[in-house]
Design a protein around this nucleic acid. Structure first.
Lengths: 108, 108
DNA sequence: CACGAACGTAAGTCTTCACTTACCATGGCG
DNA sequence: CGCCATGGTAAGTGAAGACTTACGTTCGTG
């Protein structure tokens, strides 16, 4: 499943409409029409967004009779979370170092 | 610090160059010229990107003589992480429910 | 089999935005 | 005080992409 670039996921979530779709899918699976009904854009637009989200590994889909059900992909979201955690950790670390340096200067 | 919209942060990280800047700053503070030196774009472009990242609450800056030092803002990254965690949690929850439903169907 | 519902895709438009060059302001140094 | 380094901003350009309408396809139903 590592064929998905993390870059793709970031770019996918860079669009506001796609973030709305993801937020909706976080509350449970949904069909394309259902998603479009809650959004200010047309159904084909939602289809195109879902294509991007799927390519980024953020959602999965499966056919169900006439309809196509989309759901959030925990793996994709998790990968994003992991990458963000490294930023977070290193940022905190650097922040701590900086504070210590400042304190040393102030006390010295 | 809640004046920063989480939306801004997602949109800011939607750009590849800005992600490279963030990754660089995660390894420690840097001046504009230093950042530009490690990137395939001009220095003014980096300045504009930093402006966006700053507006999104992802970085902070302070003057140091002639130079202007930018560093990652733990608060901004943390806010993003929190939001992603809710997606993550709900996605896992839904995934678990789905698995249980499928198992019930298979066993029933 | 004909019809309607649900969906993906093609083609085209229009806005957004990332990038460039040129210019201006500020701070250290001879 | 001239000179260089550093960096923010203005203006213009080109490409990416988000959206629309139109169309083709598949599936269940009368």
């Amino acid at each position: 499943m590592d064929t998905y670039r993390a870059d793709d996921a970031w770019e996918a979530l860079g669009d506001r409409t796609r973030r709305l779709i993801v937020e909706r899918l976080a509350r449970g699976p949904a069909a394309v029409g259902e998603l479009a009904a809650g959004l200010p854009v047309s159904r084909p637009a939602v289809s195109q967004h879902l294509k991007v989200l799927k390519a980024a590994g953020l959602v999965t889909d499966h056919a169900e009779a006439n309809r196509r059900i989309y759901r959030l992909n925990p793996a994709g979201v998790g990968a994003l979370r992991d990458q963000l955690d490294t930023f977070w950790g290193r940022a905190l670390e650097n922040y701590k170092h900086t504070v210590e340096e400042v304190e040393e200067q102030e006390n010295g």
